[in-house]
């Protein structure tokens, strides 16, 4: 029974980790929280659903299109809500991005309706049976996809020129600019990667729960942020760890304490983390202080 649930928690945690990476990456570069990140996640799932249900495109292609559109949306968010305010006070930027988030959420509600939409995917592959534990293929799919995405990101950031440019910009914006790094390009790239990861997470989320709604981004976004803070914001590996940890905490909390308050556990954990360990589990830099 425990191990059965454990697979659920881990696959949920992997999705949070994917989403948390976006927060952490954007924060690393521009030192601000991307409040619209959860909406990108939601839009990624909705775009995919839309291609699948309206145009009857198969999941892999629809997902690819959905990810591309969500990535475009993420870049647009940067253009509209961040770039014009690059010299504005932080306060203004926070409000402006919050505005984008409200805008996207309600636009989605108007276009796709406030109700749940069914997101049915049938892989047609039998579950994996390990003794008494039955792992449905979709859990394996979710976990596998997340791991592949995160591993490729880690390699990208570590090995490629662009990845190094990103790390340099995160460390010192001005110095990076003086070294000839196109900082604007790096910022756009960061938003693009973060958004793409969010979109993948959104699709996996939809696959897991078989349903999507315009408000799914808010809760998931908050939790992923909690995961990012937990892991030490700005640290990609921290975000991965934080996401998995959060998935387990939420699972344990709702299984053994009360399932009604499952969302409250994540928020409570976020508040506790910020109070007692603002630098996070793997934190290096300074955070909220």
């Amino acid at each position: 029974m425990f191990w059965q649930q454990f697979t659920n928690w881990i696959s949920l945690g992997a999705m949070y980790a994917m989403l948390a990476i976006g927060y952490t990456m954007v924060y690393g570069i521009i030192k601000l929280i991307n409040f619209a990140h959860g909406e990108i996640f939601m839009c990624g799932a909705f775009f995919t659903w839309w291609f699948m249900s309206v145009f009857h495109i198969p999941l892999p292609v629809a997902a690819l299109l959905g990810i591309m559109m969500a990535t475009g949306l993420g870049i647009a968010v940067e253009r509209i809500a961040y770039r014009p305010l690059r010299n504005a006070p932080r306060f203004a930027v926070v409000i402006s991005v919050l505005g984008v988030s409200i805008f996207l959420q309600n636009m989605a509600r108007i276009i796709w309706g406030a109700e749940f939409q069914v997101f049915e995917v049938d892989f047609g592959i039998p579950p994996l049976i390990l003794g008494t534990v039955i792992i449905p293929f979709k859990k394996i799919f979710i976990f596998g996809t997340s791991v592949i995405c995160m591993a490729s990101l880690a390699v990208f950031v570590k090995k490629t020129y662009l990845g190094k440019a990103m790390r340099a910009t995160a460390a010192d914006w001005e110095a990076a600019e003086m070294m000839g790094i196109n900082v604007n390009m790096v910022i756009v790239l960061t938003f693009a990667i973060g958004s793409a990861m969010a979109a993948v997470a959104g699709i996996l989320f939809a696959v897991n729960y078989n349903s999507i709604d315009p408000y799914m981004g808010f809760n998931a976004g908050m939790k992923a942020f909690a995961a990012a803070v937990l892991g030490g914001i700005g640290n990609i590996y921290g975000a991965m760890l934080g996401g998995l940890f959060l998935g387990v905490v939420e699972g344990v909390g709702s299984a053994y304490i009360s399932s009604m308050y499952r969302d409250a556990f994540a928020f409570g954990l976020l508040i506790l983390a910020l109070i007692f360990r603002p630098k996070g589990l793997l934190g290096e830099g300074k955070t909220g202080e």
Partner: peptide
């Protein structure tokens, strides 16, 4: 508990608290 936090963190925490 949240006094030490900078503005965007405070925004996130109060958002969570409201929720």
């Amino acid at each position: 508990p949240t006094l030490r936090l900078r503005d965007d963190y405070l925004a996130m925490v109060t958002l969570g608290f409201g929720q």
